[in-house]
Design a protein around this nucleic acid. Structure first.
Lengths: 222, 222
DNA sequence: TGTTGTGAATCTCTTCACAGCT
DNA sequence: AGCTGTGAAGAGATTCACAACA
């Protein structure tokens, strides 16, 4: 229903709302949310409209309620179990990041070709040999896969994950994955990203995102 | 001149072209490039039009010539020097990746708050204490910065990099950076990306990218 | 015949602008 | 007075469709 772009923004709003909640802020206006998440007030309202959450014209949006609403919209009620394939630097970064977190996302299993890495526990996550992939993914009811292996193995790994029943992939390998049309792929290509930055660092574009520049009467923001 | 989106695609075409070159393929049609890079033939032609490269209706595009053309368009002739701040898992992943590469991008210096990491050499890159940041960035004529530190330090690091003269940032911290409008920021937020995948894994969207489905008379593609 | 180059049509996303509410 | 909710305008990006060409 919602576009890929707007899901990304909801994710960002959620983070800001969590911070606000932590700071015991109870209500927030669209322009405040926009400024903190990087964006524009109209768009915030539009996005929230899409998930069917209503604010009040005098107090804005209820932080806790909105947060709940975004969670209800985005997260699977049972949570989502994720498999990580490739326990290199990128893999470890993800494990470390999700270790502490109390998200609805859990990295339920990690895999690596290197037998030395297998059967260890990293950041609370069991690490298996790659041969066990299909069995474990099925057993653990894993729905999402992270491909963090070298380019040469990426397609193979993706195939295995898909066969095992995964319907979403996060791909760090710098090759496009061929998957059935009903499998969603999100690519994170660091080299490409850096090339882009290098380009725009020289070609100063119309700025990417204006922060904190609502020319509203911005009552109290930071 | 070119949009952020199309720069991303050029970057992808470039990689495909490099592979083709390596495989001694001399010419390529727009639909082949599209299928390999993930996209559509018309768009490939449109993108190439934008950088002013012309193919021939009978043999398509000259691989080597097109590659040169994309490089000339995207890369700084002197190359671009990059600073990495934060030598954690993400930082190391980037260092490892760029170590072997013969790109126009060079990670010329790395920085970390942890003195134990400083003054080592990782993957051929000298690692400095973070106090030296501004001096080294200026001395080494660095134009792009990578922010790979925890969220709490990210803004501070960005400020320092910007003061030192960097005009592009690649940000891995899950916070929006406030920077002057003439500094370009590209965010890579792995958590957000994973949340997005989790969402679309359950909501099977109109497929993200159709690969290899030109209903052309696709002569010979894989 | 099969491809490029490209204006025009289409689609998607963002922003405006304002009625309605408190 | 200042906000939300939202139809409608606007801006961008993608795709179509076809003339020109080899």
């Amino acid at each position: 229903m919602s576009s890929e772009r707007s899901i990304g923004r909801l994710s960002r709003y959620r983070r800001v709302l969590n911070e606000l909640l932590h700071d015991s802020v109870s209500h927030v206006y669209s322009y405040q949310l926009a400024s903190r998440a990087g964006g524009n007030a109209a768009q915030v309202r539009y996005d929230l409209m899409a998930i069917g959450y209503s604010g009040s014209p005098n107090s804005g949006y209820d932080v806790q309620g909105l947060l709940k609403s975004i969670e209800a919209f985005m997260d699977a009620p049972e949570g989502t179990r994720v498999a990580l394939v490739g326990v290199g630097n990128v893999g470890r970064a993800l494990l470390a990041y999700f270790a502490g977190r109390r998200t609805s996302l859990t990295i339920a299993a990690a895999f690596d070709r290197d037998p030395a890495k297998a059967s260890h526990v990293l950041h609370g996550c069991r690490c298996y040999a790659q041969t066990e992939l299909e069995a474990v993914v099925r057993r653990e009811d894993i729905r999402v896969g992270i491909v963090a292996v070298p380019a040469a193995q990426a397609q193979q790994v993706a195939d295995k994950l898909v066969t095992a029943g995964v319907t979403g992939l996060l791909n760090f390998a710098p090759v496009p994955l061929r998957v059935p049309v009903d499998v969603f792929v999100e690519d994170i290509d660091m080299t490409m990203a850096l090339e882009k930055v290098a380009y725009f660092a020289r070609h100063t574009p119309r700025r990417k995102r204006t922060r904190n520049h609502e020319h509203h009467h911005q009552t109290t923001e930071r």
